[in-house]
Design a protein around this nucleic acid. Sequence first.
DNA 1: CCTACCGATCGGTAGG
DNA 2: CCTACCGATCGGTAGG
Lengths: 192, 192
Amino acid sequence: MTRLTRDDIVAGAGRRFATHGYHGTSMRDLGDDLGILGSSIYAHVGGKQELLVAVVERGASFFEASAAAALEGGADPLDTLERLIAGHIDVVLDHRSEARTYLAEVPFLDDEERARIAVTRRAYEDVFTSTIRDAQRDGLVRRDLDPRLAAIYVLSILNSIDRWFDQSGRLSRDEIASDIFGFACGGMVTGR
Amino acid sequence: MTRLTRDDIVAGAGRRFATHGYHGTSMRDLGDDLGILGSSIYAHVGGKQELLVAVVERGASFFEASAAAALEGGADPLDTLERLIAGHIDVVLDHRSEARTYLAEVPFLDDEERARIAVTRRAYEDVFTSTIRDAQRDGLVRRDLDPRLAAIYVLSILNSIDRWFDQSGRLSRDEIASDIFGFACGGMVTGR
DNA sequence: CCTACCGATCGGTAGG
DNA sequence: CCTACCGATCGGTAGG
């Protein structure tokens, strides 16, 4: 029964926001989850909106770190894309609360923060787009394909995974990753 | 300045739920949108939850009608899939509020309604899965592909369209539909 | 569909 | 991190 840290509060907020949504979460709900009173949360953070910002930023940072790691050392652009896909899946499944809040609750950020996060998100999407464009340049992907649309398609698939993936199901995370890579590549790879 | 109907109220609720979320919408917000008082809404509906049920059911019925139409008259399973994709896009773009509420606010339904809608949603997904399975049987799609996963991938792409599609943009709705069909098929079609 | 309300809950604060 | 609050807003109702 040691005292909570600010990180504990942010983590708890992420769990609540991910399941009940930002507007569906009251400070008292959050306090109950953490074993303290709602009003006690204000000893750690300035307010509810600040909690949303903190959770969303954590989510953004996980995706950014994943992209940075994938960009190092890919043998070729398609290999990099495979690493981007696997990394994204890891973030979505290992940091479900932050990822889900990042993906779904951004519209409820105040204007300024929302604009800032939109830039971050676009930059992350651009990593996928550029990688696909590089693959086209190297002749690995069909030239008639719009790389940004393809990136959006892949990200749409990846972002919905946590809604249907069953940890204890038939398919492992790695199998899902390679299946999605295969699905996307089958539609993009030049030869066969 | 004629009196509002129940359908007007439900339509207004859909718009609010789609943009601000169920929990981010108050009865007074909704009344403001409609030009009446929040309390006046209770002359038309039993409560806020009933409004969510009504909006979600409208969303579900649009998707069901689209699937039923696509299943009639497809030349072959791949043609049916193309029609399913085009129909889904039409629902998402022509009934944005209901579609978005259906896709995002279902977790906030009461247990009973949520369970009922889950069945409906699974049935719709199964139309995609069965169509892909039929295409496999006819030799149009790779046998090593899991039809349910492929259906989920396609639906994930389709469900995110309204977040990035620009009505006044470079690409028409039909071009998007055929691009997505092409993206999916390139990964699924047997020959080349 | 409005007037006039109700009890409950909301985000948040002062002071310890 | 709790006690003890605050004004505002919430979903909803009685009566017209």
